[in-house]
Design a protein around this nucleic acid. Structure first.
Lengths: 352, 352
DNA sequence: TTGAAAGCGCTAACAA
DNA sequence: TTGTTAGCGCTTTCAA
């Protein structure tokens, strides 16, 4: 049988109210010796407050919910880890639910969470957010992280995609390249538009005129990168560098380049995006821009924490910057990473 | 303000006891009309039972805890997904905690979970399990999934590693290979010993004598596969096939082979293990044995469900089999997968 | 077949 | 500075 607040009170020879006051650090006068005694008793008895009982009284549970369309993706896991680490620090546990792109599942998830008196919800990489009315109704705070479609909206944490594209392009231009191709992602993705914008801006500020023939579109998949590269090669055979919308397409593009008898990075320099596993295992190893998933998770958790505390000045939108990891595919000498503290993108890799 | 059982009782003109009986399907006589009326009222009011209140009474919460040393790894995520899907089906939600290989964190996690009245715990890929005494104390059931070190022990779900090795080797031998190298994983891993055993057994049953010079050791990393392959090439230059302990080492080995002027699969056929992302993006695409993570997760969830229901005949250990995915690196014609239903290993891949 | 009421462990308002 | 007590929403025993 677990130890209750009553047991502690008895052991310390005081009332349960006093115990509660001490253990919760309530601003209420308690004599020093009593406090000491209670703390000692609680400690030695191994007292742990019953969260259910507390929730019943306070409608708070030191638990937050994470709803993700898929918890298995390469970004989602890192985001979730970032959220958890920050939240645990603040004493919260996380309940994670995958909604599988199903609005009904999402509504159900919210109900399940609310009926557990969770204190807030983080939506991670969710497509829709039709169900937040339920939360407004229950007056639970919520926050979004890495919404990939349409505008991120209020209380969002997203990557600074434009900045990432600047990093990649600036590097390539600095290496002396002028004819730089770009393989964009699918149209409806938020990242596609912004990375393209970054590509154009950086070109412009270097005084290079934008050439539409240098831009192709893929679907984030490796195969699509291959096809896009073939198209680019036909349209503009004289390009000397490529910025790919993500690492997978970069890999596909390199295969196409190799099949066309071109060497990477000697003939064409390539920079990818995302710092996926493939960028480390590929030959040549891919120079890439990191997607700061872990950091976004942390930032989202912080934002939720702020909202839960009722802070007035919660920023509506936080942008997190990745950094450039210079490896082999761009032909540059190994140099220090650009854009954030040393090697941040190399952290948090899994074992095995 | 949320709807309580009292609201429903009032609306239906009955006592809260009756409502509780109907809504929980308790075996207690209730007239058909009353039942109907209560159900209708609950529905139309949108009643959701307060889980905290229920937990307080029953010490159950329809929530289970998952403790993993790292939730970010390639296997962990899929295992967790399998657990969740099975458990949600049974009406449970999951709280996930990463313990980071820290025994203290693990103990803390258990406390946090127990104080939330969780109904059971699944340990996913945890190294140690020193803290289960706490659970025995609280009389909460628990279960292990994919313990990678030492013996799996009671209530474990693990992959059938030996069977997987048989699949790989049988395929290679069937292709006519006799001199087959093997790159093993690190010594203390459970999988290393069993895959090696499977390698030897299959050799033996084909009447091929085991040659120690054909076995090298890596650390699961790509680089180590490269080095191991160089060693193998020196020790036994005439091998025609390689079975690598995992996909990463297979990739490294292929790089070494290529650097030595050998072609894969023409000169040397290669089979990997795990069906990691790299096996699909590599050139040539890797033939590999799947690690049935999702299925292990499901099996573990089922095992916990059984224990929570107090079933007597819960199996002490469940082994789950993967299957062989024939792709390009082994030089075989594309054939149907062996060992499990069609394409199981191709399911559950993430988007983007 | 239904209802009244106790009480799970805790917080917080009120009293002393 | 400390204690008493109501009550959060629910399940379950006992009585009707």
């Amino acid at each position: 049988m677990p130890v209750t607040i009553r047991d502690v009170a008895e052991a310390a020879g005081v009332s349960i109210a006093t115990v509660s006051r001490v253990l919760n650090n309530i601003d209420h006068p308690v004599s020093v010796e009593t406090r000491q005694r209670i703390l000692a008793c609680a400690e030695s008895l191994g007292y742990r407050p019953n969260v259910a009982a507390r929730s019943l009284r306070t409608d708070r549970s030191a638990t937050v919910g994470i709803i993700a369309d898929d918890i298995i993706g390469p970004f989602a896991t890192k985001i979730i880890r970032g959220i958890q680490d920050r939240l645990r620090q603040a004493g919260y546990l996380c309940v994670i639910i995958s909604a599988d792109w199903d609005p009904n599942a999402e509504r159900e998830a919210i109900h399940d969470l609310v009926s557990r008196s969770i204190d807030g919800i983080i939506f991670s990489e969710t497509w829709h957010h039709t169900a937040v009315d339920l939360l407004d109704l229950a007056s639970k705070p919520y926050v979004f992280v890495h919404r990939q479609f349409a505008a991120p909206g209020e209380y969002s944490t997203i990557p600074d995609e434009r900045y990432g594209a600047h990093l990649a392009m600036n590097h390539l231009i600095g290496l002396g390249h002028r004819r730089i191709g770009y393989i964009n992602g699918p149209e409806h993705y938020y990242a596609s538009a912004l990375r393209l914008a970054g590509y154009r801006e950086e070109l412009e500020s270097a005084g290079i005129v934008f050439d539409p023939a240098l831009v192709a579109r893929g679907d984030w998949g490796l195969e699509s990168g291959y096809i896009a590269m073939q198209y680019l090669l036909k349209a503009q055979p004289r390009l000397t560098a490529l910025f790919a919308g993500n690492d997978l397409m970069a890999a596909g593009a390199i295969y196409a380049l190799q099949d066309a008898g071109l060497r990477v990075p000697e003939d064409v320099a390539v920079v990818g995006y995302d710092d996926r596993e493939i960028s480390r295992t590929f030959r040549p190893r891919l120079t890439t821009v990191t997607l700061p998933c872990y950091e976004m998770g942390q930032a989202a958790a912080q934002m939720l924490l702020d909202r839960m505390e009722g802070k007035a000045e919660v920023a509506a939108e936080v942008q997190v910057r990745g950094c450039l990891l210079v490896r082999e595919s761009c032909g540059a000498p190994r140099e220090s990473t650009t854009g954030c503290e040393d090697g941040a993108g190399e952290k948090r890799q899994s074992r095995r």
